[in-house]
Write a protein that binds this DNA or RNA. Sequence first.
RNA 1: GGAGAGGUGGCCGAGCGGUUGAAGGCGCUGGUCUCGAAAACCAGUAUGGGAUUUAUCUCAUCGUGGGUUCGAAUCCCACCCUCUCCGCCA
Length: 419
Amino acid sequence: MISIDLIREQPDVVRDAALRRGDDIQVDRILELDSRRRELIAEGDELRARRNQVSKALGETKEKPPEVLAEMRQVGARIKELEAEARTNDGELQALLLAVPNIPDADVPAGKDDSENVVIRTVGELPSFDFEPLPHWELGENLGIIDFTAGVKLSGSRFYVLKGKGATLQRALISWLLNLHTREHGYEELYLPYIVSRETVTGSGQLPKFADTMYHDDEDDMWLVPTAEVPITNMHGGDILSADQLPLNYVAQTPCFRREKAAAGRDTRGIKRVHQFEKVEMYKFVEPSESPAALDQLVADAEDVCSQLGIPYQVKLQCTGDMGFSVVRTYDVELWAPGCGEWLEVSSCSNCTDFQARRANIRYRPEVGARPRFVHTLNGSGLGIPRTMIAILEHYQQADGSVMVPEVLRPCTGFDRIG
RNA sequence: GGAGAGGUGGCCGAGCGGUUGAAGGCGCUGGUCUCGAAAACCAGUAUGGGAUUUAUCUCAUCGUGGGUUCGAAUCCCACCCUCUCCGCCA
């Protein structure tokens, strides 16, 4: 959520920023509702002040003049009217404010979709094969480690089963990642609920706008997490942190549940886009002045994973049209998958500045006695597991159909080759 | 799931219709004292909204939402959460 002060002071900046993303927002209506809001508060407060004064006086004497009581009854009724109008007014205002996206950084390239994202750097040589590299869905089936039929049998399309060394490879990858981030990158590990309340899913911004992208339990009104970002953001919801608690760096591995309705028909082969997948998520709560550097660190941590896996990757800066709603700047990290012949987004690292913090009400006190300020939040995958598995399988495949395990994972897998 | 107890400021805890935004204690910050520290003493110490001549004025908030009343932390209703015991269970 953006600050109402910013819209009041610089409506054009906010409007133009939304247009750069391809969103049209109702700035004029927001300003109108905001000024009505203040009128309602002024009148209501005045009446409440009078009522408080009279009630106090009545409390001090035994006299209860009926005409005063009658007048106060009217004042009370008017206050109720004003409160009702304020509720409707604020409801509409809130809804419109929640639809205003964050302001992209000035140097973020304009563009309408991911085709206009800008490659910042490419690291590592694209491998050449003296045989035709296979896509992971063929490798996985040939090796008996990915069973698509079983997934469909159990749950339907976009579900799969990992078997044998495939399942072990995933488990090894997860523990290697968590070890790396906790031991070398300075993150604290969290184990989180995978099913969260409506309040939690609202605090991080998925509700109300993205309700149909999540799985939901009607009976208890609980939601399956689409990313660890949801519970982590709300860990400190409503808190006022002290400056010496910052920065907070968290890492958590969770499954992510996504209905993928909007992507019907896209990426239907393999495990690139599925309804349930594992992800290791990095998350930072920092002081505002620190957030640009924290974003660079997040990207560096994701890149370190790619380098250590020994797979070529590239870093892209998202253009305005591809950026998420709550971010000012996002870098994607993509691993090269020679079998499907494409760069796979395995991490998306974003600076949300105070946008999420404002919504989830996460503040800190810069110094003892100072007014609380909103923190800045950042998140980045480190990494998404299925796509990393794809890159590993396709990059390390051999002419005989087997797959070598990357060096760094071998202590965790206990084997160096699949097949 | 059943029975009971309870949710008050950073924490503990009083209050149970009217000078209570809230006693008292702890903590924290500043000061006095001290070579320094501790102790003691003194002072200060919530968050958010609105107005503003930025000195200040005002409103809201005692789990949440309603209700009663001139007036609610205090009474009534609903919901949420925590704890204890019983049941069930990985």
